[in-house]
């Protein structure tokens, strides 16, 4: 059986048609670019937000809400890509495309350092903010000190637990999550010396079914207050605590609608101050050399948001008072939550 070269013709042809089409329509330009309309006396900053997931995911929703808030305030003209590709080359293309379209600020809401560096080199006049860990040129670093709020959550957990066993499940054992779980444990131990903590690392950021299994296994080992790190683990955790009727804390966004009676509260990550700072640096042309944006409890970047529908246990009043005190101490800089990144 001989293979005939023309069997590949359909592909040839399709490519040819597309290329011809490109030549045909490529020449008229959309005339994109230029600044936005005047608002509040200031020119709006053309901004693109690139999210690694859908906006229904807690992590991406926080990014989305932060950018939307700035849009409502008339600070920025916003374009959004959700569920962006996960490969470095793919993200690079998306970011480069936005830069080419005249955006002055790219908010890359994931750990996309390499893609950001690539694009930053091509487009030195664009401020790119991402979860980088090396400072370079025009790529600003977003720091997420969510462990500070997790410490406060841990204090409440230490007061609530009756079994003296608490649990935390995370997508991967990476510093981001490790620090959160360690701070949760440290907070609990501060108010309750007997507390034992069970950590589970699932090995998957998205699989909610595995997240649910992990929390269930912790509950079977006696855990009665739990926390999670990562979208899938957190969603699964909320379902598990609802079924077992124990207490837990939401991750990154307000998750109280998912388990209204069972969530004591949520550790919140609020991106508005981050994005606001990035916008300001574009306006003042002060993003080269790059900045490191970090807004902790003191600056409204992270917080512990309590859920007033919580109804599993009574939170002891003295623990609540202690927590409030520590919160103030963190805010004033008097106390620093230890950051344990793990190995």
């Amino acid at each position: 059986m001989r293979r005939k070269w023309w069997r590949a013709v359909p592909i040839w042809l399709a490519t040819a048609v597309l290329v011809a089409g490109a030549a045909g329509c490529g020449d008229d330009d959309d005339g994109a670019g230029g600044g936005g309309e005047q608002a509040g006396g200031q020119e709006k900053v053309k901004t693109a937000l690139v999210l690694p997931c859908a906006t229904s995911d807690p992590w991406c929703k926080q990014g989305f809400d932060g950018a939307k808030a700035l849009e409502r305030r008339g600070e920025i003209d916003l374009e959004v890509t959700t569920s962006a590709p996960q490969d470095t080359a793919g993200v690079t293309r998306v970011l480069a495309q936005y830069a080419q379209g005249g955006n002055q600020l790219l908010l890359a809401h994931s750990t996309w350092q390499d893609a950001a560096f690539d694009v930053a080199e091509q487009f030195p006049d664009v401020n790119i903010a991402t979860y980088a860990f090396e400072l370079r040129d025009n790529v600003a670093i977003l720091e997420e000190p969510i462990y500070q709020a997790a410490y406060l959550a841990g204090m409440l957990a230490g007061g609530i637990t009756e079994s003296n066993t608490i649990g935390g499940s995370a997508g991967q054992d990476v510093p981001l999550c490790h620090a959160e779980l360690e701070a949760f444990e440290a907070g609990a131990k501060r108010v309750n010396k007997q507390v034992k903590m069970i950590d589970t690392y699932i090995g998957d950021w998205n699989d909610a079914a595995k997240g649910k299994q992990a929390t269930q296994a912790q509950i079977d080992q006696g855990a009665d207050v739990v926390i999670a790190c990562g979208g899938g683990p957190a969603t699964g955790m909320a379902q598990a605590i609802k079924e077992a009727n124990i207490s837990g804390f939401g991750y990154v966004g307000d998750m109280s609608s998912q388990a209204p009676k069972n969530l004591v509260g949520s550790v919140m990550y609020n991106l508005e101050p981050y994005f606001e700072a990035a916008v300001k640096d574009v306006r003042n042309d002060s993003f080269r050399p790059a900045k490191r944006y970090e807004f902790g409890l003191a600056d409204g970047g992270v917080d512990l948001k309590l859920n007033d529908r919580y109804a599993v246990k009574e939170i002891p009043a003295d623990v609540m008072r202690q927590m409030e005190q520590v919160k103030d101490q963190i805010a004033s800089g008097e106390f620093k939550v230890p950051y344990e990144a793990g190995t």
Partner: peptide, 29 residues
Amino acid sequence: LGRLNALGVLLAGLFIALLQSGGQAMSVI
């Protein structure tokens, strides 16, 4: 798609890459 033929693979690879990278641009622009 390249019909297990070397030239076909080259064309198919370029074609898929065109659709994907162009598609990303389409979504952005």
